[in-house]
Simulated scan of single mutants.
Amino acid sequence: MSIFNIFKKKEKKKKGAVREWVDAIVFAVIAATLIRWAFMEAYTIPTPSMENTLLVGDFLFVSKINYGPRTPKTPLQVPLTHAKLWGPLSDLSSYSDAIQLPQFRLPGLGDVERNDVVVFNYPPEFEHPTDLKTHYIKRCVAVGGDTLEIKDTQVYINGEKGENPADMQFLYFIASDKTINQRVFEQNGVWDVRPYDGGCYIQARPQDAQKFESLPFVKRVIPVRHQESDVEPRIFPDASRFPWNVDYYGPLVIPAEGMTIQLDEDMVATYGSTIRDYEGLEDVKVQENKLIIDGKVATEYTFQQNYYFMMGDNRHNSEDSRYWGFVPEDHIVGEASFIWMSIDPNADLLGKIRWSRLFSGIN
């Protein structure tokens, strides 16, 4: 045998077409999963709670790197899914909670700041693990350590007026004897209209609501606001002890990591459910205005993580922290970066795409 034959390399077998397709798909799934986990993920806006900043049908990218990506808590999951599978299998869970890992946040470019538009896991949803709870998007109006108060719809932070979003909306009643064409509303930047006797209710920016005052078939444009004495039964933390509403709210201190509180009855009513549900304690109960940890009544508590207060820019049509409380830091997903597509669900085929919103930033 020739010495050259000893060192002669064997010819590699050529991959079949099926094998090449399988390898390509596996690589694409792994790459997409890593990008989705660590850098950026696409979301769509299903509700009007952030109008006019974000519209129903907007598709946006959310940056995970801004606040740092979280390590997976639930590793046994079908790739590129959330809590449920797709299509006809959408009633089935996409994961197994047989393994639950400690969750950590990797370093990011910064922290959540006031007025950031943030995607997070909906805190009071306890059906799924933290990283698989439903995604919500709201604006962060207060961070850990802030004192928040709302007076006549205006947010105050630490006694100073908070920054108002440019496209913030409120509820108005348009008094009119005539039915107003939908096109008139759209031309004036109004998308949410509910007919009522003697007119209709709209959610609109103040400057857009004022435009209707000059229309000949409109009698009056009336702001719909709560009085300070009104009490909303569903308000957080406890309407029986804190008689607030969405327009007159607080003052309320947002918990911060390392902040210690003395647990009298008011403090237990304010923070007891937050400590019980989100601080990772194994044996904790709230009973008779007392916080019981490991079978003992706690007289003080030090928070283990930061919390945030989130509100929708559509201030009178948003389920947010005013109703269900604080967003824990470990529920934060990422910061909304830009809109890459926007589809009007109510438009005809030729007018479906809102071209002016494509690749626009989110402020």
Score class of each variant (00 low, 15 high):
77 Q>D: 06
94 S>G: 14
193 V>D: 03
79 P>G: 11
263 L>M: 13
193 V>Y: 07
349 L>K: 04
195 P>T: 09
288 E>A: 13
353 I>D: 13
170 F>H: 09
212 F>M: 08
187 Q>L: 15
111 D>W: 01
148 L>P: 07
245 N>L: 03
60 L>N: 04
251 P>G: 11
237 P>H: 03
219 K>Q: 04
33 T>F: 08
118 V>S: 00
142 A>E: 04
93 S>N: 15
257 E>I: 06
343 I>K: 14
182 Q>T: 10
97 D>N: 14
20 E>H: 12
89 L>W: 13
192 D>T: 10
13 K>M: 03
40 M>P: 02
340 W>S: 03
39 F>M: 11
187 Q>F: 12
354 R>P: 15
310 M>G: 01
10 K>F: 08
41 E>P: 11
110 G>C: 13
128 H>N: 14
101 L>A: 03
73 K>F: 02
338 F>S: 06
166 A>E: 05
201 Y>R: 09
200 C>M: 15
223 P>A: 08
181 N>I: 13
100 Q>W: 01
343 I>T: 06
175 A>R: 15
179 T>G: 13
315 R>C: 00
170 F>P: 01
20 E>T: 14
138 K>W: 00
271 Y>A: 09
48 P>K: 06
241 R>E: 00
326 F>G: 09
314 N>D: 04
262 Q>E: 15
340 W>E: 01
120 F>V: 07
271 Y>H: 08
37 W>F: 08
226 H>E: 12
5 N>S: 14
180 I>T: 08
126 F>R: 09
103 Q>A: 13
130 T>F: 09
201 Y>P: 07
327 V>R: 02
278 Y>H: 09
236 F>C: 07
222 I>C: 06
354 R>L: 12
258 G>Q: 06
78 V>R: 05
286 V>F: 09
167 D>K: 12
321 S>R: 00
131 D>F: 05
347 A>N: 12
98 A>P: 14
8 K>C: 05
262 Q>M: 12
331 H>S: 14
126 F>D: 06
253 V>R: 10
174 I>G: 13
345 P>Q: 10
21 W>G: 02
152 D>Q: 15
301 Y>I: 03
30 I>D: 02
132 L>H: 01
318 S>P: 11
241 R>P: 03
34 L>A: 11
193 V>P: 03
296 K>Y: 06
142 A>N: 08
243 P>N: 06
205 R>D: 01
251 P>F: 02
62 V>G: 07
62 V>K: 00
144 G>A: 04
278 Y>M: 05
21 W>H: 00
215 L>M: 15
108 G>F: 01
45 I>M: 07
190 V>H: 12
335 E>M: 07
354 R>V: 06
146 D>F: 09
203 Q>P: 02
246 V>D: 02
271 Y>N: 04
169 Q>V: 00
346 N>R: 13
121 N>P: 06
308 Y>N: 01
253 V>C: 08
261 I>G: 15
136 Y>R: 00
